[in-house]
Amino acid sequence: MNKDNKCCCGNQVNAMAQMDEILAKYAEVHGALIPVLQAAQNAYGYLSKEIIQYTAEKMNIPISQIYGVVTFYSQFHLNPRGKNIIRVCQGTACHVRGAKAILQAIEDNLKITAGKTTQDLNFTLETVACIGACGLAPVLMINDDTHGRLTPEAIPGILAKYS
C-alpha cells in the first residue's frame, strides 16, 4: 500500500481496512499468525508483499519469520491466483487409478503446467497429495466442488463449466 492509501489501480481506497478487521479479531489470540494469514488470503486472494509487511508491523513479528511461515505451508500464496482453483489429487489411491493421465489432460487442455495460472487468470492448476475422497478416485477439486471417477475424456466438459 502506498502512503496516500492509493492502490495499484490508482483508486483511493484503504486497502488495509479488511486487514485491520482481521487483526482486531485475533488481537487476543495466542499464536494467531497462521489464522491471520489464512483470513488475509481469503480476503485478498493471495498474500502480497504489502499485506505481509503490514502484518509484521501490526503483530510485531519479524517479516522474515512471517515469510518463513508463508513459504513453509502449501496453502499460502505469494502471487495472484486464478478465479478458479483446480486441485488435482495425486494421492496413492488416485495414482494407482490413473491420476497422472488426468493431470496431463488438464495441462493439455489449459496449456499450462501444474503450479501455474492461465493468462486470463481464470484457472490456477495445482496438485494435492490427497483430499480424502479416495472412494471416488481419481478425483479433482475445482474451488469447493469435488469431481470424481474421472477419465481424461471427461476433463474438457468439466472445465467448460467454469470457463
Binding site: Q90, G91, T92, A93, H95, C130, G132
Partner: peptide, 11 residues
C-alpha cells in the same frame, strides 16, 4: 491432520 494419501478414516 490426516495427511497420509489414501487415508480418510479420521475425516
Amino acid at each position: 491432520d490426516e495427511g497420509d494419501p489414501g487415508a480418510f478414516m479420521d475425516r
